[in-house]
Each structure stands twice: as C-alpha cells, then as structure tokens.
Amino acid sequence: MDRLEIAISHQLGDLTLELELAVDPGQSVAVLGPSGAGKSALLRVIAGLLRPNEGHVNLGDHCWFDGEKGINLAPEERSVGLVFQNYALFPHMTVLENVAFANRDAAPEMLRRFGVGSLADARPARLSGGERQRVALARALARDPEVLLLDEPLSALDTITRREVRGELAGLLAEVPVPTVVVTHDPADAAELSGSVAVLDAGRIVQRGSLSELRASPQHSIVERILGSATDDER
C-alpha cells in the first residue's frame, strides 16, 4: 500500500484551489470546510475527473498527474474508489449489477460483506438512504482501489439513519488499508470518521491536526467558526 501525495493549483471560477495533502496507507483524513471551499473539486482532482492547472498527484512511485511532464492518467487508469454525495448508483441496474459493473467476480461477496446480499435484485430507487450508501461503498471497494474517496458520505441521510450509519462507516474505514479522504462540512462526521482533520477554506488548507488539537488551538478564524458551529445532529 502506498502513500497518496497531492500538491496542486487550480483556478475554479473565482476560487483558487491551492493545496498540499499527504495521506498514509490505512489513514483516513477528513477534509472539513464550508460549501464552496473546493472540497469536492479536490476529490475530483484525485480521481482524475478534473484536470488541475498545475502540480502533481502521486500514489507512492506511481505518478497519476504531473502538470510539468504532461502526465494525466484517465479516471479508469487510476485505482480509486469514489463514493459520490448522492451515491450515483446506476438507476437502470440492480444492486448486484451496480457492484458487478466494477468487479463481476467479487460482486456477490461484496454485497454479503456490506449486508445488502438480500437486495441483490432490487433497483436503487427502492432502497433506503442507508442501503444506498452501503451499495455505493460495496461498489467503490469492489475493485480493491488503492485510494478511497468519500464525498459528504452522510449528508444524504436523515438524522436518525445518519447516527447509525456514521458508526458503521467509522468501523469500516478503520479496516480499510488504503489512504482515505473524507470530505465533509460536519465536524461530528470528521471526528468520528477520521483521526486527522484538514480544514479547507477558500481553496486552501488552513490547519491540520486531530480534532482535539484543532479545538485546543485554532489558528484561523474559520477553524473556530466551523468547530464552534453546531453539528447537523445537534441542530
């Protein structure tokens, strides 16, 4: 398993995304920030869905993107599992077909592992929010990706489901042996899903550390504002 290293600069309308981030194998980093800070763009850059203006994205010795050398691997050539905010399940396929799209041989086993084996023949429209998330995770992990990316993994769920699923997801992430980046706007999600939190504001990482470190000595007003704000659960 390899370390994920990102150093990129990208102009997105009025926002300049300019950041460096390294994530070790087995480590989960939460990128915490308000909407419009560039969180989803960061995941799209890592996945190869958005080509940054400059910089590099490396996984160990493998170069996925290098602006200077003109290297830019297509998304399908990078080994990435990306769980989208709305899960992006294929509506015309069954649960089993969704996971088999990524890996036909592993699909039945993945469904069992994620507790959705009984839903194999169901279409995504029939699933609850929590079930959809499990199918999306099973699909993203079916190819044994070397990097796992989660975009606001809990925001599509209602408050009660959210609390249940958050614990499940934390347990799962603890077992994932690859670098994981979780993007969220909710400090409670960040605290439970990742040991390390990077606060992103206006395209830049303003502080990184454990949530307790950030709480103890916030070095930026946005860190104070985000950590001081109520979580979705408390609202």
Binding site: R44, G48, L49, P75, A88, F90, P91, F101
Partner: peptide, 24 residues
C-alpha cells in the same frame, strides 16, 4: 455523477456510453 462514477469504476469512455448513457 453517474457517468463519472462509471469512469472511476474502471470503465473507459466507450463502456460508459454503452452501459450507462445508452440504456438510460
């Protein structure tokens, strides 16, 4: 997002077109 998801799941542009865009 569905088309992008298919790319990250290992499908090239033609497979995304054939398996996701066309049936939908």
């Amino acid at each position: 997002d569905c088309l992008d998801a298919a790319r990250t799941l290992g499908a090239g542009r033609f497979r995304v077109f054939r398996r996701v865009a066309l049936p939908l």
